[in-house]
Design a protein around this nucleic acid. Structure first.
Lengths: 211, 211
DNA sequence: CTCGTACTCGCACAGTCGTACGAAAACGAA
DNA sequence: TTCGTTTTCGTACGACTGTGCGAGTACGAG
């Protein structure tokens, strides 16, 4: 029966290859966020995943394939998180929740954002990676479009504005130190988004001296 | 008399060292925008500047010093461009002109933005570079603060919004291909900024199908 | 001229890079 | 068991990395 799955009568070994791939990609993310783009080498990723480099190269033949899978996983994770929002799609509560998924407000999203920035920079000069990376931007754009519509903001200009604002906020949030407050970003969204739910409870526009 | 300038009785040789440094930094920028962060090596920069690698290392002893000077030059250029704005500071026309200096609307500013993103990503994992890089963000923040004040927008939230919006627009502009129109970004600014001059002449908010 | 300093730069070392190759191991089929 | 295929991974090669060292050059001071 397994013979039907693997065309030459053989059976997959050891562990789930998907699981293995995921572990490698997560190792790549760790290397990327800890040591930066220049440290994203086959050997470093393999060591981080507790694998001999040659074993890694069986499933990831080239270093470019590691980068590519790292970007693809970025898209998967983001889509997954947005799809998991419990609120009914199309409503303002969904829009707020979806926009929050695009901001690095906790460790998980922060890591994703750091990876996005690092690989995004790499994609500027690597055509293959660039086409993969466009998918990331496309997802963000998609969410912004839906959110704008759900909040009653019509027109391309409004979507462009929201998209730029979200990416700008994410950009600034990820450049702050780990523990710092993220409330300022929520306040900006509160002040910009039309009506509906608020992110910061009981907040008035009074000036404050934080940061 | 030259002896007074060079403390040991010797005189600078060949060419102006400032000019030399500038040429090296520009070579580094070219390598960075053409081949990416991983290609920013001593040898590549030296080759781009038409210098033997060992000569480069006389003025730039380490590869880190090259990166650092590249970031510092980023700050210098930006400050210089903002200072060169002919409009009277504090007015809305100055504010508009200053904000435009922060967006990659021509080749010069586009290159600066590409370098900013690449080195910004590198600064995420390099503490030394990070402190240098904070100056870049500080200048942008400064200009946004002044511009918001000049346009009558008060409060930290308004500045945060403008800063995020500008960086977000710059982020999206630089990721488009060279020739593409940048008008959409100007329309967003037009729609957001209170009163005063307009970037896009004769523009109405009618929906358009560009992009 | 000679001398001393500022500067140039060829060369080499140790380390890391991506990748190819082939032997060994695992394991289902027979 | 033996065989065949998939998977693992040790080893090696050539290219490239940052950096140290020391010989060689340019050039003003004397």
């Amino acid at each position: 029966m397994f013979a039907r799955l693997c065309e030459n009568g053989a059976v997959p070994r050891r562990i789930n290859p998907e699981q293995r791939d995921r572990a490698v990609v997560e190792a790549a993310w760790r290397v990327l966020t800890r040591d930066g783009l220049t440290a994203l080498s086959v050997r470093n990723v393999a060591a981080e995943a507790h694998l001999p480099p040659s074993s890694l190269r069986y499933t990831f033949p080239t270093q470019a394939s590691v980068r590519e899978r790292a970007v693809d996983t970025l898209v998967d994770r983001l889509r997954q998180r947005v799809a998991a929002i419990p609120e009914p799609p199309g409503g303002p509560r969904w829009a707020h929740a979806a926009l929050l998924e695009l901001l690095p407000l906790d460790d998980e999203r922060r890591v994703e954002m750091e990876v996005t920035l690092a690989l995004g920079a790499a994609a500027m000069t690597d055509p293959d990676l660039r086409s993969s990376f466009n998918s990331v931007n496309a997802v963000v754009r998609e969410v912004c479009t839906s959110a704008a519509a759900a909040l009653g903001s019509e027109g391309k200009v409004a979507v462009d504005h929201l998209h730029a604002l979200i990416d700008g906020l994410a950009f600034h949030l990820v450049r702050r130190t780990h523990g710092e407050s993220t409330e300022w970003a929520l306040k900006v969204l509160d002040a910009y988004l039309p009506g509906g739910a608020r992110f910061v409870a009981g907040w008035s526009d009074a000036p404050d001296e934080s940061r």
